[in-house]
């Protein structure tokens, strides 16, 4: 009973701490000044361009894409770097 009560208390404390942290961020983001809103718009747009457009369409890992195992990748690289 004592153990249960202590664990329950700790869980409540953790919940309160997490709630305070979440509230801290939520309050911060809801009270952003205009310049910060512009900056956040740029950040999100930039991340979208980088990870959705650039990474998916233009930047695939060449060796992972073209070879199925590490041995083939190693043999290919050795061939590439030993041709004078």
């Amino acid at each position: 009973m004592i153990k249960f009560s202590w664990e329950f208390h700790a869980a409540i404390e953790n919940y309160k701490r997490m709630k305070r942290i979440v509230e801290f961020y939520v309050e911060g983001f809801t009270n952003l000044p205009d310049w910060a809103r512009s900056v956040w718009f740029i950040i999100l747009l930039k991340l979208l361009i980088m990870f959705v457009i650039f990474k998916l369409f233009f930047f695939q890992n060449k060796l992972k894409k073209e070879f199925s195992n590490d041995e083939d990748r190693a043999n290919y690289v050795i061939e590439q770097i030993t041709i004078p």
């Binding site: 900056v39 950040i43 930039k46 991340l47 770097i81």
Partner: peptide, 28 residues
């Protein structure tokens, strides 16, 4: 804050380039 936010993650592109454009180097 403005400079930090605009600059953040611009270095990630360099890591993309390692795998795609510099794959022999990345492997080596």
């Amino acid at each position: 804050g403005i400079n930090f936010a605009i600059g953040v993650a611009t270095g990630i592109i360099l890591e993309f380039e390692f795998g795609t454009n510099w794959s022999n180097y990345s492997w080596f």
